[in-house]
Structure formats: structure tokens, C-alpha cells
Amino acid sequence: MHEISIALNIIDLIKEEAEKNSAASIQEFEVEVGSISGVEIEALKFALNIAVKDTLLENAIQIITPVAAAASCLECDKEFSLSWFYEPCPFCSAMNIQIIKGKELKIKSITID
């Protein structure tokens, strides 16, 4: 349900950046969403499609890139992928891990004219 707030934040930030660069139109934008960021990609796409209506972004191609979560083990220093928040290290079973990827929620780039 919070995805519409997220979509509107995305649109506002992109509009500001486009205006700053005197863009006539926005052709494309790319957003990265981490798998443990708390945002559902399908819900975000749905929200974006509604929220872009009547804005500079209406006809822009939307690229939503998922970012798979990864962690590094603070005991054995190895890196591994995470399917959800906290999992023990698959190499040494330690719970002492640090998330290094997967919490992203950011606008990567925009293509303007």
C-alpha cells in the first residue's frame, strides 16, 4: 500500500531533475529496487502506471531493476546471496552477517530530451 507514496516520491524527484536540466520530455527512467527493501516490485509498477498520468513521465519507458540481496559473513568474510533478511552464513553457519546489497530503493538514471 505504501508503494503509491514511493511512486510519487520517484515522480517528484525525476520531475525536479528533468526541470533542472531543462528537459522537454523524459524518455526513460530506471529505478533499482532491492529484494529486501520493503517494496513489492509488482505493486510499485502498478502504482507508477497510475501516478505518471498527466506528468512529464507519462510516456517514459519504466525500467525497474531488481537487486538481489547479498551479505558478507563477519566471521569467515565470505560473501553469499540472501533470500530474505537474515540467514546464517552457508559456509560457517554464523548468524553474525552484514547485509551488503538488497536494501536499495533508488533512481538510477533518467533519459531526457
Binding site: 516520491n9 517528484d12 533508488k106 533518467i110 531526457i112 530530451d113
Partner: peptide
């Protein structure tokens, strides 16, 4: 992913520009 970006958007349109924003969506909050 900077290289990927450069290739994806390297069209011949003279006026088209790619702006790397790298902006946190929740930054205003």
C-alpha cells in the same frame, strides 16, 4: 552498471541525454 548504461543509451539522437541520478527514493522523507 555504468558501462551497461552507456551502451543502452548510446543512440544517435543529438539532444537525448542520460542523467545518472543515483538518488535515494526516500531522501525527502
Amino acid at each position: 552498471h555504468s558501462h551497461e548504461q552507456a551502451h543502452q543509451h548510446n543512440h544517435e539522437h543529438g539532444t537525448q541525454r542520460v542523467i545518472q541520478m543515483q538518488t535515494d527514493v526516500l531522501q525527502k522523507n
